[in-house]
Amino acid sequence: MAASEAEIPPGKSMTVEQTMLDKGAQMLQTLEPIKQMSQHVCTFALYSNDMHRHIETHHYVTRINQDFLQCAVYDSDDSHGRLIGVEYIISDRLFEGLNPEEQKLWHSHAYEIKSGLWVNPRVPEMVVKPELENLARTYGKFWCTWQTDRGDKLPMGPPALMMSPQAVNLGMVRPDLIKKRDDKYNISTDTLKVSRVEIGEPEWINPQADYWKQHQKCFVVDAEPVEMKKIVDPFP
Protein backbone atom coordinates (compact mmCIF):
# COMPACT_ATOMS: atom_id res chain seq x y z
CA MET A 1 0.00 0.00 0.00
CA ALA A 2 1.37 3.40 -0.94
CA ALA A 3 2.08 5.82 1.87
CA SER A 4 0.36 9.18 1.87
CA GLU A 5 2.39 12.41 1.92
CA ALA A 6 1.42 12.92 5.56
CA GLU A 7 2.96 9.58 6.49
CA ILE A 8 6.33 10.07 4.79
CA PRO A 9 9.13 11.72 6.78
CA PRO A 10 10.88 14.56 4.94
CA GLY A 11 13.84 13.44 2.85
CA LYS A 12 15.01 12.52 -0.63
CA SER A 13 13.83 9.40 -2.44
CA MET A 14 16.01 6.31 -2.20
CA THR A 15 18.77 6.15 -4.79
CA VAL A 16 19.39 3.04 -6.87
CA GLU A 17 22.76 2.63 -5.16
CA GLN A 18 21.20 2.76 -1.69
CA THR A 19 18.52 0.26 -2.67
CA MET A 20 21.16 -2.15 -3.99
CA LEU A 21 23.23 -1.74 -0.82
CA ASP A 22 20.22 -2.52 1.38
CA LYS A 23 19.33 -5.59 -0.69
CA GLY A 24 22.91 -6.82 -0.54
CA ALA A 25 23.09 -6.31 3.22
CA GLN A 26 19.89 -8.32 3.67
CA MET A 27 21.53 -11.24 1.87
CA LEU A 28 24.78 -11.08 3.84
CA GLN A 29 23.65 -10.19 7.36
CA THR A 30 21.70 -12.41 9.74
CA LEU A 31 19.39 -9.80 11.37
CA GLU A 32 18.86 -12.35 14.15
CA PRO A 33 17.09 -10.07 16.68
CA ILE A 34 14.43 -9.20 14.09
CA LYS A 35 13.94 -12.84 13.15
CA GLN A 36 12.98 -13.57 16.76
CA MET A 37 9.82 -11.47 16.44
CA SER A 38 7.16 -14.16 16.55
CA GLN A 39 3.85 -12.32 16.98
CA HIS A 40 1.97 -9.35 15.58
CA VAL A 41 -0.48 -7.81 18.06
CA CYS A 42 -2.91 -4.99 17.32
CA THR A 43 -4.28 -3.06 20.27
CA PHE A 44 -4.73 0.50 21.53
CA ALA A 45 -2.89 2.86 23.86
CA LEU A 46 -3.54 6.17 25.60
CA TYR A 47 -1.14 8.97 26.44
CA SER A 48 -0.81 9.09 30.22
CA ASN A 49 -0.61 12.90 30.24
CA ASP A 50 -3.55 13.37 27.84
CA MET A 51 -5.94 10.45 27.94
CA HIS A 52 -8.22 12.03 25.35
CA ARG A 53 -5.58 10.91 22.82
CA HIS A 54 -6.04 7.28 21.79
CA ILE A 55 -3.96 5.47 19.18
CA GLU A 56 -4.03 2.12 17.41
CA THR A 57 -0.74 0.29 17.88
CA HIS A 58 0.95 -2.66 16.22
CA HIS A 59 3.32 -4.61 18.43
CA TYR A 60 5.90 -6.93 16.90
CA VAL A 61 6.72 -9.21 19.80
CA THR A 62 9.84 -11.13 20.78
CA ARG A 63 9.46 -13.50 23.72
CA ILE A 64 12.78 -13.59 25.56
CA ASN A 65 11.51 -16.11 28.12
CA GLN A 66 8.28 -17.00 29.90
CA ASP A 67 8.46 -13.87 32.06
CA PHE A 68 9.71 -11.22 29.63
CA LEU A 69 8.66 -9.93 26.21
CA GLN A 70 9.94 -6.98 24.20
CA CYS A 71 7.91 -5.24 21.50
CA ALA A 72 8.77 -2.91 18.66
CA VAL A 73 5.65 -0.75 18.29
CA TYR A 74 4.50 0.65 14.92
CA ASP A 75 1.57 2.87 13.95
CA SER A 76 0.40 0.41 11.27
CA ASP A 77 1.14 -3.03 9.84
CA ASP A 78 1.69 -1.65 6.34
CA SER A 79 5.10 -1.60 4.65
CA HIS A 80 5.39 2.12 5.45
CA GLY A 81 4.53 1.65 9.14
CA ARG A 82 6.49 4.01 11.38
CA LEU A 83 8.36 2.78 14.46
CA ILE A 84 6.74 4.83 17.22
CA GLY A 85 8.02 3.23 20.39
CA VAL A 86 8.89 0.23 22.47
CA GLU A 87 7.00 -1.74 25.09
CA TYR A 88 8.41 -4.16 27.63
CA ILE A 89 6.07 -6.76 29.11
CA ILE A 90 6.80 -8.69 32.30
CA SER A 91 5.04 -11.33 34.35
CA ASP A 92 3.33 -10.50 37.64
CA ARG A 93 6.19 -12.33 39.37
CA LEU A 94 8.79 -9.94 37.96
CA PHE A 95 6.54 -6.93 38.52
CA GLU A 96 6.23 -7.67 42.23
CA GLY A 97 10.02 -7.51 42.46
CA LEU A 98 10.17 -3.90 41.20
CA ASN A 99 10.44 -1.02 43.65
CA PRO A 100 7.20 0.95 44.20
CA GLU A 101 8.39 4.03 42.29
CA GLU A 102 9.23 1.95 39.23
CA GLN A 103 5.90 0.11 39.41
CA LYS A 104 4.07 3.41 38.88
CA LEU A 105 5.36 3.53 35.28
CA TRP A 106 3.72 0.22 34.35
CA HIS A 107 0.16 -0.72 33.38
CA SER A 108 -1.84 -3.91 33.75
CA HIS A 109 -3.11 -5.91 30.77
CA ALA A 110 -6.07 -7.80 32.24
CA TYR A 111 -8.79 -5.47 30.92
CA GLU A 112 -7.09 -5.05 27.54
CA ILE A 113 -7.09 -8.83 27.06
CA LYS A 114 -10.52 -9.62 28.52
CA SER A 115 -12.28 -6.82 26.60
CA GLY A 116 -11.09 -8.08 23.20
CA LEU A 117 -9.01 -4.98 22.47
CA TRP A 118 -5.78 -6.99 22.25
CA VAL A 119 -5.84 -9.18 19.13
CA ASN A 120 -3.45 -11.22 17.02
CA PRO A 121 -4.69 -10.39 13.51
CA ARG A 122 -5.60 -13.37 11.32
CA VAL A 123 -4.71 -15.91 14.03
CA PRO A 124 -7.64 -18.04 15.32
CA GLU A 125 -8.65 -17.38 18.92
CA MET A 126 -8.26 -21.03 19.86
CA VAL A 127 -4.60 -20.84 18.84
CA VAL A 128 -3.76 -17.74 20.89
CA LYS A 129 -5.98 -18.48 23.91
CA PRO A 130 -3.15 -19.96 26.04
CA GLU A 131 -1.00 -16.91 25.33
CA LEU A 132 -3.86 -14.57 26.20
CA GLU A 133 -4.32 -16.35 29.51
CA ASN A 134 -0.67 -15.69 30.32
CA LEU A 135 -0.78 -12.08 29.13
CA ALA A 136 -3.79 -11.26 31.31
CA ARG A 137 -1.44 -11.52 34.28
CA THR A 138 1.30 -9.29 32.87
CA TYR A 139 2.31 -5.66 33.15
CA GLY A 140 3.72 -3.38 30.43
CA LYS A 141 5.83 -0.23 30.17
CA PHE A 142 5.35 1.54 26.83
CA TRP A 143 7.33 4.60 25.76
CA CYS A 144 6.12 6.38 22.63
CA THR A 145 9.01 8.08 20.81
CA TRP A 146 7.16 9.38 17.74
CA GLN A 147 3.74 11.03 18.15
CA THR A 148 2.47 10.50 14.62
CA ASP A 149 -1.13 10.97 15.75
CA ARG A 150 -0.52 14.69 16.18
CA GLY A 151 1.07 14.97 12.74
CA ASP A 152 4.75 14.87 13.66
CA LYS A 153 6.71 13.99 10.50
CA LEU A 154 9.81 13.25 12.57
CA PRO A 155 10.26 11.94 16.14
CA MET A 156 10.01 15.12 18.21
CA GLY A 157 10.78 15.80 21.85
CA PRO A 158 11.20 13.37 24.75
CA PRO A 159 9.34 10.04 24.89
CA ALA A 160 5.78 9.89 26.23
CA LEU A 161 4.62 7.27 28.71
CA MET A 162 1.60 5.34 27.42
CA MET A 163 -1.16 3.57 29.32
CA SER A 164 -3.33 0.55 28.64
CA PRO A 165 -7.10 1.01 28.08
CA GLN A 166 -9.27 0.46 31.14
CA ALA A 167 -12.99 0.22 31.85
CA VAL A 168 -13.21 3.68 33.39
CA ASN A 169 -14.17 7.00 31.80
CA LEU A 170 -11.10 8.38 29.99
CA GLY A 171 -9.52 4.93 30.00
CA MET A 172 -11.98 3.62 27.42
CA VAL A 173 -10.99 3.55 23.74
CA ARG A 174 -12.96 5.66 21.27
CA PRO A 175 -15.56 3.48 19.50
CA ASP A 176 -14.64 4.83 16.06
CA LEU A 177 -11.07 3.56 16.44
CA ILE A 178 -12.30 0.11 17.45
CA LYS A 179 -14.71 -0.05 14.52
CA LYS A 180 -12.00 0.98 12.07
CA ARG A 181 -9.70 -1.75 13.38
CA ASP A 182 -12.47 -4.38 13.41
CA ASP A 183 -13.49 -3.58 9.85
CA LYS A 184 -9.90 -3.86 8.66
CA TYR A 185 -9.41 -7.33 10.09
CA ASN A 186 -13.02 -8.50 9.77
CA ILE A 187 -13.35 -9.16 13.50
CA SER A 188 -15.73 -8.14 16.28
CA THR A 189 -14.25 -6.85 19.52
CA ASP A 190 -17.59 -7.43 21.25
CA THR A 191 -17.64 -11.06 20.12
CA LEU A 192 -14.06 -11.56 21.27
CA LYS A 193 -14.99 -10.12 24.66
CA VAL A 194 -17.74 -12.70 25.07
CA SER A 195 -15.43 -15.54 24.01
CA ARG A 196 -12.83 -14.47 26.58
CA VAL A 197 -15.12 -14.47 29.60
CA GLU A 198 -13.49 -17.64 30.92
CA ILE A 199 -9.97 -16.26 30.77
CA GLY A 200 -8.91 -15.96 34.38
CA GLU A 201 -8.16 -12.53 35.77
CA PRO A 202 -5.35 -11.96 38.25
CA GLU A 203 -6.46 -12.51 41.82
CA TRP A 204 -4.88 -9.17 42.64
CA ILE A 205 -3.65 -6.31 40.42
CA ASN A 206 -1.02 -4.29 42.20
CA PRO A 207 -2.44 -0.77 42.76
CA GLN A 208 0.95 0.79 42.00
CA ALA A 209 0.28 -0.10 38.35
CA ASP A 210 -2.26 1.98 36.40
CA TYR A 211 -1.23 4.77 38.77
CA TRP A 212 -3.46 7.35 37.09
CA LYS A 213 -6.60 5.39 38.05
CA GLN A 214 -5.85 5.73 41.73
CA HIS A 215 -4.34 9.21 41.84
CA GLN A 216 -5.31 11.03 38.61
CA LYS A 217 -1.65 11.85 38.10
CA CYS A 218 0.73 11.08 35.24
CA PHE A 219 4.44 11.00 34.51
CA VAL A 220 6.16 13.09 31.85
CA VAL A 221 9.76 13.27 30.67
CA ASP A 222 11.32 16.72 30.27
CA ALA A 223 14.62 17.32 28.46
CA GLU A 224 16.76 19.81 30.31
CA PRO A 225 20.47 20.69 30.19
CA VAL A 226 22.59 19.34 33.04
CA GLU A 227 26.28 19.40 33.89
CA MET A 228 28.26 16.65 32.21
CA LYS A 229 30.19 14.15 34.27
CA LYS A 230 33.82 14.95 33.70
CA ILE A 231 35.71 12.52 31.49
CA VAL A 232 38.79 11.19 33.21
CA ASP A 233 41.77 10.53 30.94
CA PRO A 234 42.27 6.75 31.06
CA PHE A 235 45.89 7.20 30.01
CA PRO A 236 47.31 10.04 32.14
Rank of each mutant, 00 (worst) to 15 (best):
H54M: 05
S115Y: 00
E87A: 08
S79G: 11
M37S: 08
M126Q: 15
H52W: 05
G81F: 02
P130L: 08
H40S: 04
S76T: 13
E87Q: 13
Q36V: 10
V123A: 04
V41M: 05
D50V: 09
V119A: 03
K114N: 03
I34W: 11
D77E: 12
C71T: 03
I113L: 08
H58E: 03
T43E: 02
S38T: 13
S91A: 08
T43G: 02
S115C: 06
A72Y: 05
M51F: 03
A110C: 12
S79K: 10
Q36F: 10
V73W: 00
I113F: 02
H54V: 03
H80V: 07
L105Q: 04
V127P: 04
L105V: 07
S115H: 01
D77C: 09
Q66T: 11
R82F: 08
R63Y: 05
Y88C: 06
P121T: 07
I55Q: 01
V128H: 05
F68M: 11
G97W: 09
V41I: 15
H40K: 08
V86E: 10
S79H: 14
N120E: 15
K35E: 12
K129W: 13
R63L: 03
Y47D: 06
T138V: 06
G85P: 00
E102T: 11
M37W: 13
T57C: 07
R53C: 12
E125L: 15
H80Q: 08
A136W: 00
H54A: 07
V86R: 03
N65E: 09
Q39W: 15
L31C: 14
V127D: 09
V73Q: 01
T57G: 01
Y88D: 06
S91E: 06
Y74E: 03
I55Y: 01
H58V: 04
H59M: 13
D78R: 12
P121M: 09
H52G: 14
L135A: 02
L46D: 00
F44A: 03
L117C: 02
K104G: 07
Y47C: 07
C71Q: 02
K114P: 01
L69V: 07
H54G: 03
N99I: 05
E102V: 08
D92H: 12
L98S: 08
D50H: 07
H109V: 06
T62W: 12
Y88P: 02
I113V: 15
D50F: 02
Y111R: 02
E133P: 04
R93W: 08
A136L: 03
R53Y: 00
I113N: 00
I84R: 00
T62N: 14
G97V: 12
